[in-house]
Design a protein around this nucleic acid. Structure first.
Length: 489
RNA sequence: GCGCCCAUCGUCUAGCGGUCCAGGACGUCGCCCUUUCACGGCGAAAACACGGGUUCGAGUCCCGUUGGGCGCGCCA
């Protein structure tokens, strides 16, 4: 029987010291895609061995972020710190086999070592002073760390699916700490042990870990374990090319949600950041999964571009059903509603109007925030607040024109788009003005803005009563002396 | 400082020695559609960082320069 390749197991392993940022989200996406592409699993491991900085809130944020993005993992979440005993056991076994040793160097010594090296222009590395020294010569009460006895000669090779073959001279790599003096494992040890124990076959992560791959390879080799497949993906930079940091637009994934982006759009944007499939720009989840592979990942860092994300988001909003959009809008109400005087949920009649107007609304917005603002006329409390452009549209002549139009509207046989358009067009023709001269003031009076979905669409959704009321609200302010230019007819 | 990685339009990218006077997308500009704004359609400007090789032939391979990035913790 033919040998089946090992089932693919990837993992996303964030440290809960902050929110899930855009780079982490893309790493998770790539791991998720790869696992699905090859019918494998993606595991989630929280690297919480830094007890000082790990927080419950960060763990929540990461899990919520992944869920919102639509990335699911297989099995239970693994908490790294809970596995400390196993990590220690591995370190001890390396000590026993001579692949590791106790080091009694103090923090002060190490600091001095680095300082001297810096001053003399030498590499900043641990000098191996306890590598062959008799532990018996250690100070009685000193607490040692356990260091890997890394090879001194030869080279360590990382065969990377993205970066290619990367070689380090072993003399450039020092003896890393495996176990701290308090007996807790370091990241370097914990990652290797966990990836091994969890059966991880492919490690897909940011290329800031490329050097770590070499050091981790040494640990795998010391344990006689199979080294996983590596794929170190380039980092994402801010729009200015600088590293993405908190000051440079590194937002938590929840911020993208509040900015009004759809998870599907973010997935599509992210997958094209560093990865490509010919000239294809738009990918459904199925297409992404079917096309994704490590070989098509580029090697150079990409800049984050909001304009392109917005374009994609607009595309997916136009594609989304009206019901979904209304729901997405409502989901955002807790964070966006208060500033707009909206309750945490839409009133049933507002909901109905939103759905009815959504066709016209959604093709004019790039984000859910824009969508919500563009829908102002549907939920605005009377009286309508006019923005500057709308007020400018409603000069005396325009108000007079609206006053003259009002009875025609009130008398319309049927309050439908088609009928309304006939009435307004006829009015414009009879009064000798261009359609825009009637339509724009009407739009301003009805929506409070100078732009909106199609006017007759707006009127139909608002209904006769509401439209006439808004018209009346404006005509009250009209100067009495102004006459409507009477038509030639 | 040492080690490693990277380098095509403003941005994301296609290109895996000839089919490239370099293709697509976003953005920008113009035109069309039009009651506004969008959507949509059409069109334009816009790039192989630089210098050496290798080769009949280089955006594609090699070396160097320059410019970016990452790493060098008893953080992850």
């Amino acid at each position: 029987m033919s040998a089946m390749p090992d089932p693919v197991v990837t993992r996303f392993a964030p440290s809960p010291t902050g929110f899930l940022h855009i780079g982490g989200a893309r790493t998770a996406l790539f791991n998720w895609l790869y696992a699905r592409r090859f019918g494998g699993k993606m595991l989630l491991r929280i690297e919480d061995t830094d007890r000082e900085r790990s927080t419950e809130a960060a763990i929540r944020a990461i899990i919520d972020g992944l869920s919102w993005l639509g990335l699911s993992w297989d099995g239970e979440v693994v908490y790294q710190f809970a596995r400390a005993a196993r990590h220690r056991e591995v370190a001890e076994s390396m000590l026993a086999s001579g692949r590791a040793y106790r080091c009694f160097a103090t923090q002060a010594e190490l600091e001095e070592m680095r300082e001297t090296a810096r001053r003399e222009g030498r590499p900043l590395r641990y000098d191996g002073r306890w590598r062959d020294r008799d532990p018996a010569s250690a100070p009685a009460d000193a607490k040692p760390v356990i260091r890997l006895r890394a090879p001194i000669e030869g080279e360590t090779v990382v065969e990377d699916h993205v970066q290619g073959r990367v070689v380090w001279q072993n003399k450039d790599l020092d003896d890393l700490v495996l176990l701290r003096s308090d007996g807790t494992p370091t990241y370097m040890l914990a990652v290797v042990v966990d990836d091994h124990d969890m059966g991880v076959t492919h490690v897909i992560r940011g290329d800031d870990h490329l050097t770590n791959a070499a050091r981790q390879t040494q640990i795998y080799q010391a344990m006689g374990w199979a080294v996983p497949q590596w794929a170190h993906i380039p980092l994402i930079h801010g729009p200015d090319g600088a590293k993405l940091s908190k000051r440079h637009g590194a937002l938590g994934i929840d911020a993208y949600r509040d900015l009004g982006f759809l998870p599907v759009a973010l997935r599509n944007y992210l997958v094209r950041l560093g990865w490509s499939h010919g000239n294809q720009e738009i990918f459904s989840d199925e297409e992404m999964v079917a096309a994704f592979d490590l070989g098509q990942i580029g090697r150079s860092p990409a800049r984050f571009d909001f304009a392109k994300l917005e374009n994609l988001n607009g595309h997916y909003m136009r594609q989304a059903s009206n019901a979904e959009l209304v729901q997405r809008l409502e989901d955002l109400l807790p964070s966006l509603g208060p500033a707009r005087g909206l309750p945490p949920r839409f009133a049933p009649e507002v909901r109905a109007k939103l759905e009815a107007a959504m066709d016209g609304l959604k093709e004019r917005a790039k984000t859910l925030v824009e969508l919500l603002d563009a829908a102002y006329y549907l939920y605005a409390a009377a009286p309508l607040t006019l923005d500057a452009k709308a007020s400018a549209l409603l000069d005396d002549a325009a108000r007079a024109r609206l006053a003259a139009l009002r009875p025609r509207l009130a008398a319309a046989a049927e309050w439908s788009q088609a009928r309304l358009e006939e009435v307004v067009r006829a009015f414009a023709e009879e009064t000798g003005c261009k359609l825009g001269q009637v339509a724009q003031p009407l739009r301003a009076a009805l929506t409070g803005r100078s732009t909106s979905p199609g006017l007759f669409d707006v009127m139909a959704v608002l209904g006769r009563e509401e439209c006439l009321a808004r018209l009346d609200a404006q005509s009250t302010a009209a100067s009495p002396g102004v006459q409507v230019a009477s038509g030639a007819a």
